[in-house]
């Protein structure tokens, strides 16, 4: 920003101010206003430029003035925030299970929670299937691998069909699984 509080501005700078901000000194940058007015008083050329700028200012001021309609005010006020009601309604809501809550809105009120809930469920299901496959692949590797410990753990896992047990076994193997991947 051109701050010239201690240095007199030039006629060129004054011309730039009038060119950009027009003929009303209150629109000029405050930091230069005083110096500009002092120079203006001494410069017939600048005063002529001011006259030209004032004509444009006056013309611009003839542009139509817009007033807000009553209906706009009503629409805005209708959308205003309201005082928050007591929270007892939340406490009185019947307890529902996660699945009941998730599915309850499906048929009735198209609850906004449904899409996000379904998405979350899909992600969990996908992760479950994905990691199970990875675990089984690792187990098969373990059966043929070189580590006796790994083979023993994997054999245990391979004999059960319970997915939860697979996860538990997978967690046990997790640290060595990363090393396996690196190799």
């Amino acid at each position: 920003m051109k701050t010239m509080t201690s240095v007199s501005i030039t006629t060129q700078r004054l011309a730039e101010l009038i060119d950009a901000y027009g003929a009303s000194p209150e629109r000029w940058p405050a930091s230069e206003r005083e110096q500009a007015l002092a120079l203006l008083a001494r410069s017939p050329v600048a005063r002529e430029q001011m006259q030209q700028a004032r004509q444009l200012d006056n013309l611009l001021d003839m542009a139509p003035v817009a007033r807000p309609s009553v209906s706009l005010e009503e629409r805005i006020m209708a959308a205003r925030p309201r005082s928050v009601p007591p929270v007892k309604a939340v406490a009185a809501a019947p307890a529902r299970s996660f699945w009941a809550g998730l599915m309850g809105g499906f048929g009735s009120s198209r609850s906004a929670s449904l899409p996000s809930g379904m998405l979350a469920a899909s992600i969990v299901l996908g992760l479950t299937l994905g990691t199970s496959v990875n675990a089984l692949e690792y187990i098969s590797k373990g059966l043929n691998g070189s580590s006796a410990t790994t083979t023993a753990s994997a054999t245990t896992l391979a004999t059960t069909e319970d997915t939860r047990d697979q996860f538990l076994g997978y967690a046990v193997l997790d640290s060595s699984y990363a090393e396996e991947l690196i190799r």
Binding site: A66, P68, M77, R80, P81
Partner: peptide
């Protein structure tokens, strides 16, 4: 806080300039 008078005062103070 849902104060209606404040909403109206704020709107009255600024709406004309925003529309303009």
């Amino acid at each position: 806080q849902g104060d209606e008078r404040a909403c109206r005062m704020l709107m009255d103070r600024h709406l004309t300039r925003v529309v303009a």
